[in-house]
Computed example of a mutant assay.
Amino acid sequence: MSIDFTKAVGIHPEALKLRAERTKILASNIANESTPGFQARDMDFASALSERVNADGADGGLSLDTGDDALKYRVPFHPAQDGSTVELGVEQAQFSQNASDFSTSLQFINIQLKGLAKAINGQ
């Protein structure tokens, strides 16, 4: 009898890949906070994850494509005079929440793998 690890850990590996990509996007926004005219970008995580999970069943593989089509421009609460849409507080909050969600998915995978190890060892 074989163990299908993709079923055992659920969607969390795909979530980790998307969270890592979103971390890069948010870090880019923060790094360009003082760049005049820079347009802050972000992804709709829920729809991106849904697409990855649905694509996984269709062609047997995940494609992490967060190109320009997947990224959306962030609408600022208080537009800057230089045309930049980066609001440091918003970006930092999104970055922090994304890091927390990344950690949570990683903990779920860790718990699932520990449970599988116990089952394999007969505990």
Rank of each mutant, 00 (worst) to 15 (best):
M1L: 15
S2Y: 11
I3W: 04
D4M: 05
F5N: 05
A8L: 14
V9C: 06
V9Q: 03
I11F: 00
H12F: 07
H12N: 12
P13C: 05
P13V: 02
P13M: 07
E14Y: 07
E14V: 04
A15W: 09
A15G: 11
A15Y: 02
K17N: 08
R19H: 05
A20K: 15
E21W: 04
R22T: 00
T23W: 06
K24Y: 00
I25W: 00
I25H: 01
S28D: 10
S28L: 05
S28Q: 11
N29R: 01
N29G: 02
N29E: 03
I30E: 03
I30Y: 04
S34F: 10
T35V: 14
P36E: 07
G37S: 08
F38K: 12
R41P: 00
R41C: 02
D42C: 04
M43D: 04
M43V: 15
D44C: 06
D44H: 03
A46E: 13
S47G: 06
S47C: 04
A48C: 12
L49D: 04
S50G: 13
E51L: 09
E51A: 14
E51R: 13
R52C: 00
N54M: 09
N54P: 00
A55N: 12
D56V: 02
G57E: 13
G57W: 07
A58Q: 13
G61R: 15
L62F: 13
S63M: 04
L64M: 04
L64S: 05
L64V: 14
L64D: 08
D65P: 03
T66L: 09
G67I: 03
D69G: 12
A70Y: 00
L71Y: 01
L71S: 06
K72R: 07
K72T: 08
Y73G: 14
V75W: 01
V75N: 07
V75D: 07
P76V: 06
H78S: 14
A80C: 06
A80S: 13
A80Q: 08
D82G: 02
G83F: 11
G83N: 10
S84T: 10
S84V: 03
T85A: 10
V86N: 01
V86S: 01
E87W: 05
L88I: 15
L88M: 14
G89H: 07
V90R: 03
V90L: 08
E91Q: 12
E91T: 04
Q92N: 09
Q92Y: 09
A93M: 15
S96H: 09
Q97T: 07
Q97R: 12
S100F: 11
S100W: 05
D101W: 02
D101Q: 14
F102A: 13
S103A: 15
T104N: 03
S105C: 13
S105N: 13
L106Q: 14
L106K: 10
Q107H: 03
F108L: 15
I109P: 00
I109Y: 00
N110Y: 02
N110V: 06
I111R: 08
I111S: 08
I111L: 11
Q112I: 02
L113Q: 01
G115L: 10
A117H: 10
K118Q: 10
A119V: 13
N121K: 14
N121W: 01
N121Q: 10
G122E: 05
Q123F: 00
Q123V: 12
